[in-house]
Structures are given as structure tokens and as C-alpha cells.
Write a protein that binds this DNA or RNA. Structure first.
Length: 422
RNA sequence: GGAAAGGUGGUAGAGUGGUCGAUUACAGCGGUCUUGAAAACCGCCGUACCGCAAGGUACCGGGGGUUCGAAUCCCUCCCUUUCCGCCA
């Protein structure tokens, strides 16, 4: 969430910038500013009250020590009404603070000035494109047909074991998964990321820390008995490492990567877009996460984009990078770049990565800070997929199909141990 | 699942009703000394809110209670550790 201080000190600017996200901030922000001044007044009264009680208590103690019991008893009665008053003040203080937090949670992050105007996917800007869209053989098959033809992925078997959206990878299909995971992790390590293997089940506090809760509660699988959530992305456990942590400037930027299975309920999204590997309930993803200073975070973002671009290049996939417009960005993001690869048989662009800078929005919830001089300041947090497997696999299968089989890109062959799927 | 112990500042670890936001040690930072380093010695060394400032307030796992006054007593919830059982 945005910080109270920034909102009260830059009220008009905040409202203006939020407009790009099509969020009308006038009312909630006006309310927050009003509540904040109320909060300050109330605290002053509360503090004065408590201060007096503390003083009286000290006097009572002294009097007892001196054996002046009667005087002490008289003083005691004085504190009774002060205590009543302090209870009232502290109750309204709690109420005000709760109200402020509740409103703050409904206010999205402000887009960076370089985010384009727009309402939806059609308004995103293509930053650049790369790779070559291949000539397709006649009767090119979509990946779900190829998966069946070469016995790589069994969707029906997944339905039997778990349900729709939980495919079973087999033989060369399974080995391709493992190869991609290792390839992505090795690339990340070479780029200076520390590999993390986090839990894939997290508590509610972690869900709140990165912002999945309370907003997207319905999108996560929840284990009722233990009140734990299956992670929708490694971002959750890996970023929460730094919840309630004060870092030193020398430790920044922190660069972590992690491979995990990701679990998403995807409630309400059915139809042709979910065919095959296009949208799953469980999938593999390698995530890169960075924690940085505000001064350096945009350079970090550029490096992350370059890292992902390098990956799709090495996989020889045709891709494009989109600068998301204000209307298409997530609630918590300040700026987002999506990577899409072209899946030549489906003739569709598939999103395979989303790289975002959250600036201090997420860090404020996490209370992830670093020390500057003698004070503390909020860090910037960033993350990006590098990469999510299913749609990469979809594009690899479709784009590289030949009459002899499916060709494996050179960079991947050392990992798969085969250069053709037959 | 059964039993026990315990949750205090970066870490270790004191503190059982009254200048305790908290002894001390280690780590860290600054300095003296040294050609440099080590050692020794001196100083600093939690977070947040309110306030122009002086200063005030809160926080010793969370919440509630007793009391003039609570890290310290009571209730409750959560968590961790150890032992036993089960098990990859």
C-alpha cells in the first residue's frame, strides 16, 4: 500500500497519478487525509493523558516508599478518571487507524510516469519484437495434438488423478520440463541470482505481505485444516523472506531466483483460452526477485528485462515485449512489462513473463526497509517470471514441429539430452 | 498424536510488581594507539508515532484482565524447541 505520509504530503499528485489506473482517488484520499489529522490530534490527547498517569504513578510509588500512605491513597483516586479518558482516546485511536488502513488497502499503486494511458490490453505498447515467426508445415498441429501424438503430456490422465488443469507429463515431455527448469536456473545463477528453494505452502501473514490477501483470496488454494495457502508464484515465499527486515545498503540489490510449482484456482476463467497448456491450475515457474534502493530499482528492472529477453532469444522463440498501459496493470504494480511468445499453430501471442517494479508499495506492507544514514527507508521490490514453463512448452512444440519430429533448440539440448522429439 | 519447557533488542542471555526500553557479553559503527593489522582502551549502537524543538507516547509472541503502576501476576490464543510415538 501507499504510505500515509506520501499521501498527506502529495495529495493532489497522488490523485492525478492514480487516474491513469482509472482509479478515482478523490474521495478515499480526501478521507484518509482528514482521518490522518484526526489521528494526530487524538494521539496528542492520548499521549498527554498517559503521560499524566505515568507521572502520578511515579509519585504514588515515591509516597509509599516514604511511608506517606494516606497521601498516596488520595493521589490514587485521581488516576481513575484519567484512565477512563485514556481508554476512550485509545479506542478512537484504534478505530481511526483501522479505518485508515482499510482505505489504504483499497488504493492501488501509482503508475510510473512512463506508463502509457489506456484501458485494456489493446492499449499496451509494443516495446520491441524479436525472433522469427517460423514458416509452418502444412496442417501444423496445436501443442495439445502434438502432446498426444508424441505422448508427451496426458491431460485426461491428469483429470483422473486431480482434475482439469493438472496435466501429467511423460517421457520426453517430462524430461523437457526438467531441462527447462535447469536451464532457467543456470541462466539465473550466471546472471548473479541466488537460488532459493522455498516452501510452496505459506501462512496468511505471507499472503498479506505480498498482497495476494485479502484481494485475491479466491485465486489461491487454501488448506483449511492448517490455514495455509498453496503459493500462486514463488514471489510470495521469496519476497516474504524480507518481511519485517531492515537491510543495510551494502546488501542491496538482493537478487534471488527460485523454481517452484505454482498453484492457481483460476476461478471463472474457462473457454478456448484454457485449451492445453494455455492456462493450468498447477505449473512450473522460475521467478526472479529483487530488492533494491529507490535510486537503483529502475536499473534493476532493465536488467531483469534483459535477462528474460536473453532467455527467449536462446530458446529461439519469436517474442514481443509489451509496456502495459495503466488500465491493464495489476493493482500493486508501478510498471509492468509483459513478454509474449508467438505460438505458431494456435497463431496466438502467449504471455510467458511479467516483469514489474512495485516500488515501495509492496515493501510498505512487508515492512521491508533499509538503513540510510541513521534512518530507515522502504526498499523497492521487483519480480519477474524467468520463465513460466507451460506456454514456453506450447510455443516450442508448435513452432519447431517438422515432418520428422519436434526440434529442440540448441541451447536446450545439453539439458534434454536429445535434439528431436520423435 | 502424547508429554514437558520456552517465547525479551542483530545474536547470545539477565531481569518475578515501581526511574526497565530494559543488566551484560558478542557482533556492528566511530575514535585513541600502530608503518599497517591485531590486541587494549574510550564512545555510539532497537523500532514506530506525535511535536518546530525541548520532549512525550507505545512496543519484552498476539489479545484481554488485575493494579496508582506490569517484561514481571492472572486468563486466553498463537508459535517454537526437546523427548516419546508414527513416518518420507
Amino acid at each position: 500500500m501507499l504510505t500515509l505520509k506520501y499521501i498527506t504530503e502529495n495529495t493532489d499528485e497522488v490523485i492525478a497519478r492514480l487516474a491513469k489506473k482509472h482509479f478515482d482517488g478523490k474521495e478515499p484520499i480526501g478521507k484518509v487525509v482528514e482521518l490522518d489529522s484526526k489521528r494526530k490530534k487524538t494521539q496528542a490527547q492520548l499521549d498527554a493523558c498517559l503521560s499524566e498517569i505515568n507521572q502520578l504513578s511515579r509519585q504514588v510509588g515515591d509516597l509509599y516508599k516514604q511511608g506517606k500512605t494516606e497521601e498516596a491513597n488520595t493521589l490514587k483516586t485521581k488516576t481513575a478518571e484519567l484512565k477512563e479518558a485514556s481508554k476512550d482516546f485509545s479506542a478512537s485511536m484504534d478505530a481511526i487507524e483501522t479505518e485508515i488502513t482499510d482505505i489504504l488497502l483499497t488504493i492501488p499503486n501509482m503508475p510510473n510516469p512512463s506508463v502509457p494511458e489506456g484501458v485494456g490490453a489493446a492499449d499496451n505498447i509494443v516495446e520491441r519484437m524479436g525472433g522469427v515467426i517460423p514458416e509452418m508445415v502444412v496442417d501444423a498441429l496445436p501443442h495439445w495434438e502434438l502432446a498426444k501424438k508424441y505422448d508427451l503430456i496426458d491431460f485426461e490422465l491428469g483429470v483422473k488423478i486431480s482434475g482439469a488443469g493438472f496435466p501429467v507429463y511423460k517421457g520426453q515431455g517430462a524430461r523437457l520440463q526438467r531441462a527447462l527448469i535447469n536451464f532457467f536456473l543456470d541462466e539465473a545463477r550466471e546472471a548473479g541470482y541466488t537460488e532459493i528453494m522455498p516452501p510452496t505452502v505459506v501462512n496468511a501473514a505471507s499472503g498479506y505481505g505480498t498482497g495476494q490477501l485479502p484481494d485475491k483470496e479466491g485465486q489461491m488454494y487454501h488448506c483449511n485444516l492448517d490455514d495455509l495457502y498453496l503459493i500462486p508464484t514463488a514471489e510470495v515465499p521469496v519476497t516474504n523472506i524480507y518481511r519485517d527486515v531492515i537491510l543495510t545498503e551494502q546488501e542491496l540489490p538482493i537478487k534471488n531466483c527460485a523454481y517452484t510449482q505454482c498453484f492457481r484456482r483460476e476461478a471463472g476463467s474457462y473457454g478456448k483460452d484454457v485449451r492445453g497448456l494455455n492456462r493450468l491450475h498447477e505449473f512450473s515457474k522460475i521467478e526472479i526477485v529483487r530488492i533494491d534502493t529507490p535510486e537503483h530499482s529502475y536499473q534493476s528492472l532493465d536488467e531483469m528485462i534483459a535477462h528474460v529477453e536473453n532467455l527467449v532469444n536462446k530458446l529461439e522463440l519469436p517474442y514481443r515485449i509489451l509496456r502495459l498501459c495503466g488500465g491493464d496493470m495489476s493493482f500493486t504494480s508501478a510498471i509492468t512489462f509483459d513478454f509474449e511468445v508467438f505460438s505458431s499453430a494456435q497463431k496466438r501471442w502467449l504471455e510467458v513473463s511479467s516483469v514489474s517494479n512495485f516500488e515501495s508499495y509492496q515493501a510498505n506492507r512487508l515492512k521491508c526497509r533499509y538503513r540510510v544514514d541513521k534512518k530507515t527507508a522502504l526498499c523497492h521490490t521487483l519480480n519477474g517470471s524467468a520463465l513460466a514453463l507451460p506456454r514456453i512448452v506450447a510455443a516450442l512444440l508448435e513452432n519447431n514441429q517438422t515432418l520428422e519430429g519436434i526440434r529442440i533448440p540448441k541451447a536446450l539440448v545439453p539439458y534434454t539430452g536429445f535434439d528431436m522429439i520423435k
